[in-house]
Design a binder for these strands. Structure first.
Lengths: 212, 212
DNA sequence: GCAGTAATTATGCAAGTGTATAATTACCAG
DNA sequence: CTGGTAATTATACACTTGCATAATTACTGC
């Protein structure tokens, strides 16, 4: 019954980094950034805590890497569906809104992560930069889609007004996304994208309902 | 140069409780719930840490009290302006939207608090209850205002549609509120309420611009 | 003034924190 | 199968955390 040293398996550097990042993200979502302690992360990744320092300069480093990983993941999720669609501009706008308001983009863990990271994002310049870039990217894509759809419908739109439309649509989408993630049981499965399309359509002045 | 015991002044129980709550809220906004340590709270309230235990059973207790305090404060801020207005239903709706998208409701600290408390709200049943109540209250008030304004305009609206309208308007307002608090410098002072009124108006099908 | 008492401070403690460093051991080249 | 070495575990340390308890002291009623 002697104390035995723990057995282990060597993994590729990439796999280990990813496992550590995934564990960190889970814990940040559940307990906030400060709740994601090195020991908790190590345990969830089924590893001892010393290993974290072997792959990351510091815990801070791991957290930043995890944040960046998550953000680019989210970008990929909304970028894919709309950009590779070959239909009309209106169709691409519809696809973009729908993708943003359906799983896996709408997801309790993502919402929790967003909230948990907010204060770190506001204090840490490196994180702030990542955030600003992602946010601007999302809104610019939305603005471009709106512009194209309006153009297609023969409605030239001035830049200032276009900006307001993009801000407003972004806000509805954000708001719905947030509520869908924060209160998963409060909405029917396809209620969110439906409301989103109606609202975005009403704001920009286009009918985005499928029927047409 | 001997170590002297710290001088102090006795304050009323109410004042001390409030000072501790205010300090706690500031720190939660800045560093998250776990970053609001008893020592940091005590220091900010200009008091030694032992005093916290004298006014609250535990740190947990103080945090819950602070959350409740903040939430009722927010409710008061949006409730006041719209309810005591004696104009048309449309005017009350306009006032409600404007109040929700202007300081002091739009405020970086409030947004940070919302984010910091989210995971605690999702895990702790007591906090979850407070949150659900406040959220439902806000949306119900919004729905009632929309119903009244539509009714006033001679447009009877069915319950299901009314719910969707309220969800959508709530989402725009939430989204704008959030972005206004998270990126205070990204918007002109009156840009948010302006966009909010245009969007809510577009969604429900009423012109909420001041001119009329 | 002067006790009494509750508000406040001071101190101590066990558990948890990030990080540094030493000790092992799984895998690879030969 | 046999070193060599990097991946991994183990241990230690200084510091922070929430809480409990003891020591003081500012105010109140007389």
């Amino acid at each position: 019954m002697s104390e035995e040293r723990r057995k282990f398996k060597r993994e590729s550097a990439e796999a280990r980094r990813e496992a550590l990042i995934r564990a960190a993200l889970e814990l940040v979502a559940e307990h906030g950034v400060r709740g994601a302690t090195v020991r908790a992360i190590a345990e969830r990744a089924d590893v001892t805590q010393g290993l974290i320092r072997h792959y990351f300069r510091s815990k801070e480093d791991l957290i930043t890497a995890a944040y960046e990983h998550h953000m680019t993941h989210m970008t990929d999720l909304t970028e894919g569906p709309a950009s590779q669609l070959r239909g009309t501009a209106r169709d691409r706008l519809v696809a973009f809104v729908e993708a943003s308001l359906t799983a896996p983009v709408v997801d309790p863990q993502s919402t929790a992560l967003w909230a948990s990271f907010l204060n770190k994002v506001q204090n840490d310049p490196a994180m702030k930069a990542i955030h600003a870039r992602t946010y601007a990217d999302f809104r610019n894509r939305l603005e471009a889609l709106i512009a194209a759809a309006l153009d297609e419908a023969g409605q030239a739109t001035e830049a200032g007004r276009l900006r307001h439309l993009a801000i407003a649509c972004n806000a509805v989408i954000d708001g719905l996304w947030l509520e869908g993630g924060a209160l998963p049981d409060a909405f029917e499965p396809d209620e969110l994208p439906k409301i989103g399309l109606t609202s975005v359509g009403a704001i920009v002045g286009l009918n985005l309902t499928h029927s047409s």
